Simulated scan of single mutants.
Amino acid sequence: MSTWLFAALVLATGFERIAELVVSTRHARWSFARGGVESGRGHFPPMVVLHTGLLLACLVEVLAADRPFVPALGWPMLVLVLAAQGLRWWCITALGPQWNTRVIVVPGLTLVARGPYRWLRHPNYVVVVLEGFALPLVHTAWVTALAFTVLNAVLLLGFRLPAENRALAALSRPSTLPQRSGTAPR
Rank of each mutant, 00 (worst) to 15 (best):
V129P: 00
L155S: 08
L55Y: 12
A72W: 15
L59V: 09
P123T: 05
T140Y: 06
G108L: 06
V48R: 07
V79A: 14
E38M: 10
E16T: 14
A147P: 04
A72E: 09
W99L: 07
L111Y: 02
G96T: 05
N165C: 07
P162K: 13
L146D: 01
L73K: 01
V70C: 05
D66Y: 04
L161K: 03
T52E: 03
V62R: 02
L177W: 02
W75A: 13
L168I: 02
G14I: 10
F133V: 05
G14A: 14
L111A: 13
F159K: 15
A83W: 10
A12F: 08
P174G: 01
W30H: 14
V60N: 02
M47D: 00
V49A: 15
S172D: 06
A7F: 14
A184N: 08
L130M: 09
F44M: 12
A184V: 10
G182V: 01
I92Y: 06
F69A: 12
P45Q: 13
A113M: 04
P107W: 03
F148E: 00
L130N: 01
R121G: 02
N124D: 07
R114P: 02
L73W: 10
C91S: 08
L9A: 11
H43F: 12
V79Q: 03
R180S: 09
A83L: 14
Q98D: 14
E16K: 15
